[in-house]
Amino acid sequence: MTMPAASYRRPAFRPRRLLQMISLRTRMEVLEWSGTWWFLLTLVVQAVLGPLIGMFVWSAVYPADPYVATYYVALLLVTVMTESFEQFTFSEKIYDGTISHDLLRPQPVIVNTIGTNIAIRTWLTIMGVPVALLTGIAFGISLTWTAILAALPVFVLGATLNFCWIFMLSLTAFWTERVHSIVGFGWTLNSLLGGTIAPLVFLPERLRDIGQILPFYGMLGLPADVVAGRVHGLEPLLTGLGYQAVWITVFSTAAVLLWRAGIRRYTVVGA
């Protein structure tokens, strides 16, 4: 099958243009999601529940340790600011065929996925910060600006890592209709080993060592530990950043491979 030939060509990859498109998409999605604030509120409630329960439990175990409250308030903030929902915003498009619209646009499909992710996180942050502030005031915690600034790089990489992890799992929608179970399992690993059920420092030494290497601590517990002043010195910070970078590389490479294999299987059902 042949059709008329093109008259012009543009450069294929333009990073600045890509950033512009992500920014534009984010703005659109922020507007789009503004109409569903009540739904976003339920997401915030779900996100804060785990850290709040952890805080109540561990505060009862260590009532005199101020670290527990500081850690969990920071963790609460990190959780609402880095939640990812690609199993809904991306996988569902594969299931109902509406991803075809994205495939026909002259931009990588991931632009829309990232735009949606940032937009939802923006709304969750706006709604989650008051909850964190109230909790912080209630438990009388105090944070230092130096700790917050030191946590910024690990927070940014943690947010990226969380997105890469959930997006990678969501890509399994090309093969199975049970993507929500798969992402749910990933979320359980996050809670268990990321520092929500228990701060990593409270785990037995062997488990703690394994937890620091696995990707989940880098998504949640590490930024919270830095804010809580539990990570002392540059070396552990750089080690944490290094692990995060390695896992981002691993997950994003896996995501690219899954995308390439999955898109060949895509049969555009119902579209």
């Binding site: 099958m1 042949t2 059709m3 008329p4 030939a5 093109a6 012009y8 060509r9 543009r10 294929a12 495939l103 026909l104 646009r105 002259p106 931009q107």
Partner: peptide, 21 residues
């Protein structure tokens, strides 16, 4: 099989191709 539209292989979904269809 082989498919060519405007001189492109459509499944590669190059941006310059998608701008013209």
């Amino acid at each position: 099989g082989q498919v060519q539209v405007l001189g492109y292989s459509p499944w590669q979904r190059r941006s310059e191709f998608l701008r013209q269809i």
